[in-house]
Design a protein around this nucleic acid. Sequence first.
DNA 1: AAGTTGACCTGAGGGC
DNA 2: TGCCCTCAGGTCAACT
Length: 272
Amino acid sequence: MPELPEVETTRRGLIPWMRGATIADLVVREPRLRWPIPADLAVRLRGRVVTDLTRRGKYLIVSLDKGALIVHLGMSGSLRVVGPEVPPGPSEPFDLVLAGASPMAVRMRDPRRFGALLFSEDPLHHPLIAPLGPEPLEAGFDGAYLRARGRGRTIAIRDLLLNGHIVAGIGNIYANEALFEAGIHPGRAAGRISADRYEVLAQAVIAVLSRAVEAGGTTLKDFAGSDGRPGYFQLQLRVYGREGRPCPRCATPIARLSGGGRSGYYCLKCQR
DNA sequence: AAGTTGACCTGAGGGC
DNA sequence: TGCCCTCAGGTCAACT
């Protein structure tokens, strides 16, 4: 599920609830996520104050008066605000309980358990965060940067975009959508794309991600924002998941790139 | 070094 | 209806 726009949607929804709040407790029902939730985490968190909620790529960083939580939603994760009376369902590994006049909890749902909840004294230097590439919606990301990273390489351009150490936050949906918008074939070797086309691609990445953030992310199956409402960007998808349907530009049926990992969708006429 | 594949999990959907 | 197979929004580790 969650790529940059979905994580950003979650972050924006949680800010009013979390910023300035005191953590009353962490209730762990299932510690076996991508990495185990540290056993002593609840003890460390009780009484801590949330000073800020930020995002780096697909990671949420909950800054505390001492240290920070690092949250990743994996493939199937979401965070929702619930009242204390709402009983937890299956696949809901933890609640972060916040104190206040009307106490509430931030509840994680993660059926596939590819998500993570970790603690760090210095999150920006954490081994998962430090190697991330630039944020695509901030300065430092442009065509020249992408071209420099792709220079001389035979890797498919889609896989370059999916590598968080090259650029942070892009997943399979938005990589495919941006490549369509830029008219570039997802399998094209990264080293065989002109400077001009790299500039078009970088702008397409920025445009697609910005529109998706505005729409509240993409809900294909089960993504929900912190208020439980879905995103709406799936209505604007032009190629992802649309094999056989007409290309919005030329009406040629959308093709699917199979073989080797995750699938790619593209128009074989518009994208070279 | 760069590229490719497997691994980690659950649940949904299609075919028979 | 039910079983089995395939696939899914991520990404690290271990191979070639």
